[in-house]
């Protein structure tokens, strides 16, 4: 491995500091005994974690967010993986056009996407706000699903699928016994990325929310606009912990090289 220059190393350290230090402040204030969100914390207690996990708007919203992120991820993969194969392995006539279509949510401002969906899905088609959110999030995640699985498909030897066909497997059988398993690390990383993206999304969720179905980030945003208590720090800390656990589990199962390399060799 190449040695990095001292300048690059200092910049990297500075970057980490800029990212991590504010997070540490949030984590620290979550453990306060006092009533206000301030640093340094006054005393040490877990009371705000208690409050956070028993505050019903948060727990309801957490369940909604998990449900939405999970379903949107499954849908995005179910549409995105076949689309990727069709774009990259098939003989589609307008192939770059189709690819552009699937990647476009990546460059459109999410607020615009949200507003368009609000007008079309909820006002015109009168879908309920969960259905509209599911469609909106799926559209948001599709580019990630297509890009990440596509990146691992580029690395996969096309002869693998040909070999399976030659040995007697139908195209469908080949897809399930060879293509999917070979792309598994790419699919898992696409799923993780999609899940986190949906879970954290604010703009689309903000426009498509209702009183009955509201995601956690939107609920937390609403909350801090009204109140300024450590419950928000406690909730953030819990989310942070969950993310770290998820990352560690993924690393254990796959290894980062594979998550980002995205192919089964």
């Amino acid at each position: 491995m190449k040695r990095s220059s001292p300048v690059a190393a200092s910049l990297a350290v500075l970057g980490y500091l800029v990212m991590i230090v504010p997070i540490l402040f949030v984590v620290a204030t979550a453990f306060t005994e006092g009533e206000t969100l301030r640093f340094p914390p006054e005393g040490l207690s877990l009371r705000w974690f208690d409050e956070a996990t028993s505050y019903q708007p948060f727990t309801d919203a957490l369940l909604s967010s998990l449900q939405l992120a999970l379903l949107a991820t499954v849908l995005a993969l179910a549409v995105g993986i076949p689309a990727t194969l069709a774009i990259m392995r098939g003989r589609l006539p307008g192939r770059s056009l189709v690819e552009g279509l699937f990647l476009s949510p990546l460059i459109l401002p999410e607020l615009v996407v949200g507003l368009a969906l609000f007008q079309q899905l909820m006002l015109q088609l009168e879908l309920d706000n969960f259905q509209a959110l599911l469609i909106g999030h799926t559209a948001l995640l599709l580019p990630y699903a297509v890009r990440v699985t596509g990146a691992s498909l580029v690395l996969a030897d096309p002869a693998l699928e040909e070999a399976a066909r030659g040995l007697g497997a139908s195209p469908l059988r080949t897809f399930f016994t060879v293509t999917l398993p070979v792309l598994r690390p790419g699919i898992i990383s696409a799923a993780l990325l999609s899940f986190v993206t949906s879970f954290n999304n604010v703009p689309i969720s903000l426009l498509l929310q209702s009183r009955d179905f509201r995601t956690l980030p939107v609920t937390m945003l609403d909350y801090v606009q009204q109140n300024y208590t450590p419950i928000i720090a406690a909730m953030s800390t819990l989310l942070l912990a969950a993310t770290v656990v998820l990352a560690v589990v993924a690393e254990r199962i796959l290894g980062f090289a594979r998550i980002f390399g995205g192919i089964n060799r």
Partner: peptide, 13 residues
């Protein structure tokens, strides 16, 4: 037919 590919194309999984 039985085909042997130049890259061998063995299923890695």
């Amino acid at each position: 037919l039985g085909m042997v590919f130049q890259s061998y194309a063995l299923f890695p999984h």
